[in-house]
């Protein structure tokens, strides 16, 4: 009982951890590739001011890669959550039905005994 609830709790945590690792993995790749085309320094001006700068091929590739990772994460979270909820809801409602049936049987049996 306890261990199963622990596992249920840990699963999304691990999911979240894996998802958090994804950008790090991308970051490591970029670090390996020499002179990854990062626009300016860490304190770059806001996007509006950058319209003039040259878009290099590396940056363009990074844009697409990050777009796909981002939507991958969104799908993973939304559908993973929905799937888990669906399973949980089915399991709990089944358990509820079983318990209700057992209590009904016990109460019914007791009632019969009293009547007889």
């Amino acid at each position: 009982m306890r261990s199963s609830s622990m596992r249920r709790g840990l699963a999304p945590l691990m999911l979240a951890g894996a998802a958090l690792m994804a950008p790090l993995a991308v970051g490591a790749q970029e670090a390996e590739a020499p002179a990854a085309a990062a626009p300016a320094t860490a304190d770059a001006p806001p996007p509006a001011a950058q319209s003039a700068f040259q878009v290099s091929e590396g940056l363009e590739a990074m844009r697409y890669r990050h777009l796909w990772i981002a939507y991958g994460v969104i799908w993973l979270f939304v559908f993973g959550f929905v799937w888990r909820n669906w399973k949980l809801e089915r399991a709990t409602s089944r358990e509820l039905d079983a318990l209700e049936a057992r209590i009904g049987d016990l109460e019914g049996g007791a009632g019969v005994k009293v009547d007889g």
Binding site: A19, P23, A44, M62
Partner: peptide, 13 residues
Amino acid sequence: ITGPLWARPAWGA
């Protein structure tokens, strides 16, 4: 998670 993925190419950080 999506925020930093956007920020890296857009802000460079």
